[in-house]
Amino acid sequence: MITFPNAKINIGLGITEKRTDGFHNIASCFYPVNWCDMLEMIPSKKLIFQSTGIDIPGNPDGNLCLKAYHLLNEKYDIPPVHMHLHKIIPIGAGLGGGSADGAFAIKMLNDMNSLDLSIKEMEDFSAQMGSDCPFFIENKPVYVTGRGELFDHLDLSLEGKQIVLVNPNIHISTKEAYSGVVPQALTYALKERLLSDISSWKGVVNNDFENSLLDRYPIIKKIKNQLYEQGALYASMTGSGSTIFGIFDEEIDLSNYTEFMVWSGKLD
């Protein structure tokens, strides 16, 4: 079985409160994007995980695909599989690629073993791997609160719009990103604004991480400005960076970004 775990973007990201557990409360929209990894699983006599493509830092035993297997195996005693992850989505780039890999592994193992898990049950397993993971079970636009695990339906469609994602090959750690943020309540109704015309988002629907990171990394600010100069309806950094995206009515010339990792395609 082969699937294609996809990335997501944040449209708006407010850091609204520092929690007593050390995490932060946020307000954001998660929207799926078709920049994808590839994940294959086949039956095996023993559990095997291997990866190709972009090098994944850290111990492979900590990969979320393996964690997904162990979570389900602990409850359902499922047979071993050979997993092959071909990594394409940039790592530590605000795109949720690792979270998607783990969530898609849950869905694959559910199908392969006929576990008949409900959406809610798969989301609960995914939540044990990370705050972003449950989003990728249904993989639909949602309004997100809490520490990123509370989802409200959001009737937002950008179907047919062209998106350009530019990753400037800068790794920004979560610790670094949060060090420049002062949590504060939103001064506008983000959910309602997202349901208005996209032309009203610029300068209003903001990513709070940009306040410090765009000055610290001028190339990120330059990319954002270039996307607007090329006619973006809206442009923003996604997550805690460093990827910048622009949403357009039609395809654009990408020759300005040849030194970076770039993906462009239609939104669903």
Rank of each mutant, 00 (worst) to 15 (best):
M108R: 01
Q128V: 05
G146A: 04
S157H: 05
F49A: 09
I48L: 13
A105G: 01
G62Q: 12
E121Q: 14
E17V: 01
E149R: 02
I56D: 03
E74S: 12
F30W: 10
M108T: 02
D111W: 02
E159W: 02
D152L: 15
E138T: 12
S126Q: 01
I42Y: 00
L64F: 11
A103L: 06
H82D: 14
D37K: 01
P90N: 09
D101S: 07
D116M: 08
L71T: 04
L66H: 10
P134C: 10
V81I: 05
D101P: 05
W35N: 04
N63D: 10
D77L: 13
D21E: 04
A100D: 07
F136V: 07
M83L: 12
C65P: 00
D77H: 15
K18Y: 02
K75M: 07
L95F: 13
A68M: 07
M41V: 07
E121H: 06
D152A: 15
T145H: 09
L117F: 07
K67Q: 12
S126M: 02
D111H: 05
G22M: 00
K140L: 13
Y31P: 06
E17Y: 09
I26S: 06
K45W: 06
F125W: 13
N73A: 05
D152M: 15
I89T: 02
P32Q: 01
I48V: 15
A103Y: 05
L47Y: 13
Y31G: 06
P32D: 03
S44Q: 03
N139W: 04
C29D: 06
I54Y: 07
P134E: 11
D21K: 01
F125Y: 15
F104P: 00
K46E: 15
K67F: 10
A27E: 15
L109G: 00
G96D: 11
P80Y: 14
P60F: 14
A93H: 01
M129S: 02
V33S: 03
N73M: 13
N139G: 02
K18Q: 07
Y69W: 14
H82C: 12
G102Q: 08
P79Y: 12
M122G: 03
L71P: 00
C133G: 02
C65T: 08
W35F: 14
N73H: 15
I91L: 15
I54G: 03
T16G: 08
M122Q: 11
D124A: 12
L64T: 11
L117C: 04
D21N: 11
D155H: 14
K45G: 08
K18G: 01
H82G: 06
F104D: 04
D132I: 10
S114T: 09
P32R: 00
G98A: 13
M122A: 03
D152T: 15
F151Q: 08
E40M: 06
G130H: 11
D55G: 03
A27F: 12
C36N: 06
A100H: 05
D55M: 11
N110P: 00
Q50Y: 11
L47K: 14
M108L: 10
E138V: 08
F135A: 00
S99K: 07
